[in-house]
Design a protein around this nucleic acid. Structure first.
Length: 286
DNA sequence: TGATATGTTATCTT
DNA sequence: CAAGATAACATATC
């Protein structure tokens, strides 16, 4: 699932590909994924490629912005040439051999190339917002992990304000932005905190440790170009490799590398949650 | 085939 | 009322 490191990896690659180029044409194949009139962005130059939380922001001229959420299975694939039907160099799992594929929802012709927005499950979207609307939209999101507002004091304040399970708080985008299931599970494991621990019951030491673990796993995710566990791909169709370095996510039934206990899977807030009963056991709950 | 998984949001419940 | 719990969304996989 595209979380902060995955979206940031896409952002970095797309910036190289499309910055300062003009959107020539927009073809909408599924209106749910692009509800507005595509003509409104044709002819606009892309003057910035940014990210906030798990959202990609394409800044356009004339105070307009395209923003995109990849949700569960979104992909942005860039092909430098704008052909009617692009044959890929090799068969790519989740796409096939050609673009557009059956999950392509929007095609943006940008400069001489094409940007394909694929989203198998049709949850993701691209929408056009004015600068004012964008500002309002982004204000809903919580602390950005790599920005200065992710201080120990701010993090502590957020965690102490909720009785919910710490893992659910980490996933709450209005509290902390960009954390998804993978990075929530991995960071709690590193800090030896049980995912069901009430957020406001964490002590100062645990909060500090969790903050450091979050930064650590997000950086690790970035280093490996994100986790291509399922649908996530880079714009050039290569895969991220962070999934090969998971310590806890998806490892139920396997032995913990630290204490050899068997890793368990539970459901928290309807989300798959993995933890080590040894390292993150109830004995560690304060 | 029907249960399950997934991130977010809308809606229901306490 | 607000916080928390749950259903809904679309689709593929098992």
């Amino acid at each position: 699932m595209p979380e902060l490191p995955e979206v940031e990896t896409i952002r970095r690659q797309l910036e190289k590909a499309i910055l300062n180029k003009k959107i020539v044409k927009v073809k909408v194949l599924s209106q749910k994924q692009f509800p507005q009139n595509p003509k409104l962005v044709e002819g606009e130059k892309i003057i910035g490629v940014e990210r906030r939380a798990k959202i990609l922001i394409f800044r356009l001229e004339h105070r307009k912005n395209l923003i995109a959420h990849l949700k569960l299975s979104g992909q942005f694939i860039w092909t430098p040439k704008a052909e009617k039907k692009t044959k890929l160099k090799k068969l790519i799992p989740t796409i096939g051999e050609f673009l557009p594929s059956k999950s392509t929802r929007v095609i943006l012709t940008i400069g001489k190339g094409k940007l394909f927005f694929n989203e198998m499950r049709k949850f993701g979207w691209i929408k056009l917002l004015s600068d004012e609307e964008l500002e309002k939209e982004l204000a809903r999101y919580g602390i950005e992990p790599f920005k200065t507002d992710f201080s120990l004091a701010n993090f502590e304040k957020v965690l102490q304000a909720s009785k919910k399970a710490i893992k659910q708080v980490l996933l709450d985008q209005e509290k902390i932005a960009g954390i998804g299931n993978i990075y929530a599970n991995e960071s709690l494991y590193l800090s030896k905190i049980h995912p069901a621990t009430p957020s406001n019951k964490l002590n100062k030491k645990q909060i500090e440790s969790l903050k450091n673990s979050l930064i650590k796993v997000l950086k690790l995710g970035l280093k490996f170009g994100g986790a291509s566990d399922e649908y996530y791909l880079h714009p050039d169709t290569t895969r991220g490799t962070y999934q090969n370095h998971f310590l806890i996510y998806g490892k139920s039934g396997e032995k913990c590398k630290n204490c050899s206990a068997v890793i368990k899977r539970i459901s928290l807030g309807g989300r798959g949650t993995y933890f080590c009963p040894g390292c993150q056991g109830l004995a560690n709950r304060k």
